[in-house]
Structures are given as C-alpha cells and as structure tokens.
Design a protein around this nucleic acid. Structure first.
Lengths: 195, 195
DNA sequence: CGCGGGTTTGATGATGCTCAAGCCCGGTGG
DNA sequence: CCACCGGGCTTGAGCATCATCAAACCCGCG
C-alpha cells in the first residue's frame, strides 16, 4: 500500500503513533499519483497546488532564465517533500519548475487538506514543526556553504552530507545544484579522486 | 515599556489579540537586556541558550575560519530575531558568533520558556509557524540568489529587498553577507551609481 | 593637526565560466 | 553482430569575474 511509507515517516518525525482513524484521514487527504521520468509536477507561472511526498523515485526543482539557463534549488528522493513552499502557502504563481528525474510514486496533498490535518492530527502538527525546524537548519547551512566555500569544498560537503544525491542524479544536475558549471564539477571530481 | 514592541509584533503575525494575562506571561518569559555595540550575544563553542528579539539596535551572526576570515550569515535590525536556530533547538555547541553592531535593547527567551509559551498562547503558536514559513521562503530565495546571481545582481537584489541594511551596516559587512570581498562591493557600487 | 577605521583605487593572479572538440557508452536499426 | 547515433561527461584553450595585496584616500574625532 502506497501510504505506508508516509505513515512511517510521520511517526518517525513525531512522538505520537497514528490511530487507525487518523491513518484513514491521511489516506483520504493524500492522493497517490504515478509520474514518469521527465514529467512535470509544476511549471513556472502556475500555482503550486500540491505538496508531494515522494514514496519512490526522485525529482528536482529549478528555475529557468531567459537564456534557458537552469538553476536547481532543490533535489529530492524517497521520503522527501517536493513543492514550492512560497507558492503553495501564498497561492502565488511559482517561478519554479518541478520535474521528476526518475519514474516516481508520489502522494499529493493540497494546502487546505494539510491545514485540516495539522489541526486534527497531533502527529502531523508535530511533524510539520519538525520539518520546518530541520529545514531552517539545513538551509542556514547551505547558505553558509554557498557564500563561503569554493567549488571543491561545496562538492565534498554535498558528497558527505547526501552521498545518495551523487549516485542518483546526473552530474550536470549536481553541478547546477552546487552553483557551478558541469565542466568545473568534472574537473573537481577528477582531482578529488587522486586524494 | 520594552515589551510593547514584542506584543505588537506578535499580534501582527497572528490573528489573535493578546490578553492581559498572556502579556504578563510573555513579559515574564522574555528578559530585557541592554547590549552595547560590539558586545557578544553568542560565541563559537557555546550553546545558544536564548533567542533574541531586537527591540532597538542591530546585530550580525557570522562564522570565523582559522585564517580569521569572517562570513556573515545573518543581519538583523529592529523586530528581527537573532540566534543560532540549530544550537538553540538541539543544545549543541554553536559554530557562530553573534555580535551587536549598534547599542541595542533585546528581549531574551530560553528554548524551554518558548515551548511553554507556544503551548499556552495561541498567538505565539501562530507567530512561530508564520516565522518558520517566512523564514523558509526567504532562505529559499537567498540560496537561489547565492548560486545563480553574480556580485552585482546580488547587491542590487539586497538593496531592493532590504534597503535598511545598506544604510545601517558598514559596507564591509554587507560584502561578507553577500559572499563577496569589500573591494568588489566598492567597485560594484561605483558602477551602479552611474546607471 | 594627526591618528585610525573604513572605503577606494590600482595591479596582479586565481578560480571558474564559456566555447569547442573529443570521448565514452548504452541503445537502435540495418 | 556490428555500425552508428546521441547524450552526458571529459578535456583543452582563452577569457571574465572576482579575490588578494598594497597603497592612497577620506573623514570624524581626540
């Protein structure tokens, strides 16, 4: 059953166990959806109507400049969330694209449903706080890395923090996520091999 | 009375008004403290025991590398919060310094007191969620700026988003916050003057 | 008047980008 | 089964951006 990983995730992020009734509510709120590689969850200009919990697969969120230059701001795999937080909360048009990079199973929930769940299910409420807290800490670190480390240091930090990413995403995406060119990343990797 | 700006702030971030009783509780939890320019609120290695709400003044949070190279990750003025979120939540030793850049009045609250308040005062609960939400959105944007914009674009974005910062912090700090050298910032400013 | 911190200016060099070509490898069709 | 794509990665050369180092400058203050 596709919702099981979500239940496990929620319980892992909170001190409450889920009751059967709560699981039912959650199951109703989260719609399952299968997305194939290269399918879009969100396109620039649209409002992000769903947050996606990745049950299986992987995806990326990025912007595109006029010159068709992509900048990846987020990568996500199993048990991660994907969605434009700003657009989702404020119902504003998004500046991002979200695209799956593998065939994926996701669970989608609207902002309204999520708010209801937060109010009704203590474990969800706790989970949301926990996610926000961890998110704030992680982004703080990433900003620090982005403004204070050079290309090589940023790559090594990522490889240490999320080795999974290096394995699952093509190198060009890793480069974009790190804010460096694919060529530079290639050279950095070659260099770090001999160490 | 020093707590008034905090009450106003809380109410502005929530849909609830504060009762007199709640204000009393808040006043008890938040200790006022005067800090002079260059005084530290936190030093590397210490646990961040307080979140600070700035009633008056300004401060900065930064790391220091062995080579005594500073990297500012956060600037804050009136009605902003200052503290290392990670250390504050996890009681782990901080990697940051927090220093006031002006004579300041701040209100300090421990993690435990804050948790009590969140549970007891609906407006505070709402405020915390709102801050987390806005924080997540703002840091997302800052990451995007850091990895996709060049020095000039980053400066112009900051000047547009927080003109206050440009006026209140010395240029060298703005440079560090943007992840560029003071010399480069000086040249960028000269250039943007003639446009 | 002279000191000192922050900013500016100039010269030089490193880091990383761009453009272009070659390479590797897995997939496809003859 | 092999030849031929084609996409992603690598490699190289030249160049732009930005850091570094050093000196001059500006201005408020003792």
């Amino acid at each position: 059953m596709l919702h099981e990983p979500l239940f496990a995730y929620i319980e892992s992020k909170s001190s409450h166990m889920l009751t059967d009734y709560e699981k039912e509510r959650i199951q109703t709120a989260f719609k399952t959806r299968h997305l194939r590689k290269r399918q879009y969850l969100l396109q620039e200009g649209d409002v992000c109507r769903y947050m996606a919990f990745i049950v299986k697969g992987a995806g990326r969120m990025y912007t595109m400049k006029e010159n068709s230059q992509e900048t990846i701001v987020r990568l996500a795999v199993e048990s991660w969330w994907l969605g434009d937080y700003e657009s989702y909360n404020l119902y504003s048009p998004s500046i991002y694209y979200i695209e799956m990079t593998e065939d994926s199973d996701v669970l989608l929930v609207t902002h309204e449903s999520m708010q209801d769940l937060v109010a009704a299910v203590p474990a969800i409420d706790e989970m949301v706080r926990e996610i926000d807290r961890r998110g704030a800490i992680a982004t703080q670190k990433r900003i620090h890395a982005a403004i204070s480390l050079d290309a090589e240091e940023r790559y090594e930090l990522l490889a240490k923090t999320y080795p999974e990413f290096i394995r699952r995403f093509p190198q060009s995406m890793i480069a974009s996520y790190l804010g460096i060119s694919p060529e530079t990343l290639s050279r950095v990797r070659k260099k770090t091999l001999y160490k």
